Every structure is written in C-alpha cells, then in structure tokens.
Simulated scan of single mutants.
Amino acid sequence: MDTKYKIAIVDDESEILNMLSRFLQRSGKYEIVTFLNPLTALSTIDSTYDAVLLDIMMPQMGGLEVLEKLIEKNPEQKVIMMTAYSTLDRVLKSHKVGATHYLMKPFNSLDAVEKKLQDVLQS
C-alpha cells in the first residue's frame, strides 16, 4: 500500500475538525490527526507531518503565533491557514511568516480543500 500523507488539522471548532477529518480520510491517502487546542498541537506536530491545516482565530493562541512556532521548529513545514475572518493584512502576514496557502471558511467545497492540500503536498 502507498504511504499515507500525515496531516494535522488545528481548529477550535470540533465540527470543522470532524468534517475535514472524515472527508480527507475517505480517500485513503491521508493519516489525519486533529487538535482542538493549538498548544497541544505545537507540542505534538513535528517534521513527520507532511502538512498542517491551521485556523487563524483560536482562543488559546492565535494561528499566526502557532504558525511562527511551527516554522521555527521546522522551516520546511507546509502550512495552510484557514479563516472566516480574512483581511489582506492577515494574508500577507501569514505568507511572510511561512504559510504555504490560505483557505477561506466556510469552504466552497471539501473537494477544493483537498485540491489545495494536494497542490501543497506536491509542491
């Protein structure tokens, strides 16, 4: 069997975690690990993860701060930022810090999320 991509999803909304996790696992291409708490995610995510889907707005710690710490630990980490509250400033800052891509919530379609993930994994 082909190697699965190891993907972390970090979001403070369990509905988002469950929806993305179930959808992505259906294809059989991904091993999904979800985190409701960004602090737990930071202590767990290491270079064995192929990509991270990361929410920007979380109560315990902001996504941009999590992104900075992930990139410090692993400069090659591929991170897709997710947010319902996009501003040009946030987009630019997340790219400057090291985000690979950006997704707007609510998602247009879960297929679009997977396509973005595939693009990131193959880049």
Rank of each mutant, 00 (worst) to 15 (best):
K115D: 06
S86R: 00
L24V: 12
P106Y: 05
R22P: 02
N18G: 00
K6S: 08
M58G: 09
D89Y: 05
V97Y: 09
L103W: 06
P106A: 05
Q77S: 04
L88Q: 13
R26W: 09
E114D: 12
Q122C: 03
T3Y: 08
D2M: 14
I80R: 11
P38K: 10
A41G: 11
I7W: 01
S21K: 12
A51S: 12
L67I: 05
I32M: 10
I7V: 15
V113F: 07
V33C: 01
S109I: 02
S86Y: 00
L67P: 01
Y30C: 15
T48Q: 15
K105Q: 13
I56S: 02
H101Q: 10
I7A: 02
S94G: 03
D119E: 15
L88S: 13
K6G: 08
I9V: 15
I56W: 03
D11I: 04
L110T: 12
S21W: 03
E114G: 09
R26P: 04
I16S: 04
M81R: 02
E15A: 11
Q60R: 08
P106Q: 07
V10H: 04
V52K: 02
K4W: 02
V52S: 05
K29F: 04
M61E: 14
R90D: 14
F35C: 02
I71N: 01
T3S: 05
K73R: 14
K78Q: 12
D12F: 04
M61L: 15
V52T: 14
E114C: 09
P38C: 10
D11W: 03
V120E: 06
L67R: 03
E15I: 10
V66Q: 07
Y5H: 12
G63K: 03
K29D: 15
R22V: 04
K4P: 00
D119N: 11
L42C: 09
T100M: 13
D46V: 14
T40R: 14
L64M: 12
M58K: 08
I71F: 06
S109G: 02
K96H: 13
S47E: 15
I7P: 02
Y5C: 04
A84E: 08
V10C: 06
D55M: 07
E114K: 07
S109A: 00
K116T: 15
D2G: 01
L103V: 04
A8F: 02
